[in-house]
Amino acid sequence: MGKYILKRLVDLLPTIFVVAIIVFVITRLIPGDPAAVMLGPQASVEDIQELRDDLGLNEPLHTQFLQYIGDLVQGDFGVSLTYNQPVISLIMDRFPNTLVLAFSALVIALLIGIPAGIISASKQNSVMDYTVMVISLIGVSIPIFWLGVMLVLYFSVNLGWFPATGMGTMDEGFITYIKHLVLPSITLATIPMATFARITRSSMLEVISQDYIKTARAKGLKEFFVIGKHAFKNALTPILTVLGMQVSALLGGAVLTETIFSWPGMGRLIVDAIDKRDFVVVQGTVLFIAIIFVLVNLLIDVLYKIVNPRVNYSSGKGGEGK
């Protein structure tokens, strides 16, 4: 297993390299002068030139690229002009906050979405099933930035149950901390939750009609184990695939959620940086998020292997079982 993870890690290097190139290309090659964009329409030509020099934008492209990659390898994501700080330290300040938010959302999504899908599938065409289906369809269609605003309107403005903005600290007490977390994590959890419910349902329905489910029942197992153990473990593969995609949605959704709730995370950092036209920060944070995503998907590949014994360890050349 260790070997497999190592091999996959090595496999990821080209992808991370491509990701870096994409960020570079987007910020350098697309029409429009980042320096001009950063300084806004009122900036003078001299100011723009000066900033271009500072950013190294007047160097030939390949020099810029080598410089950029060289910095990245050393963990240097550039220096923010507006914060006067290395981008990586800005990111590291906020990354844990985003992690807390994304993780709570993921836990909510999994704990509600998957059981809902299982129940829905095992009672196909029941009222319960239709309810889950309708709610999950609305869930995948809802703009979460609207949901967030509506939650604020009802639960903060009207009812005053939860704070509308900000993140609590543990110093203020656990309850305060959780209270701050409730609305943002529900907002962020909605789409993954609905998606998990849908994919779990369809994947379970496919599995439930398989012969080995009949075998499990014929053994005299309780229905709970037939569904929860025999069917569910087989239904996990598509759920894992969706999990990989949902991590991406969570990181993207964090940008919107953090904006609504003024959550001091990486998404908020990006949006603030956009407001301040600090494109070094935007570039660095986006790159960081993409790398996180790639690593999470490695983790999911490993989970695949654990869940499904038929997946080959040594994918590619000469794979031969174990």
Partner: peptide
């Protein structure tokens, strides 16, 4: 590898 919305955001910051 880029969350969909993040890719669009990045492009928009450059494109205006």
């Amino acid at each position: 590898a880029f969350p969909f919305i993040l890719l669009a955001i990045t492009l928009m910051t450059v494109l205006g």
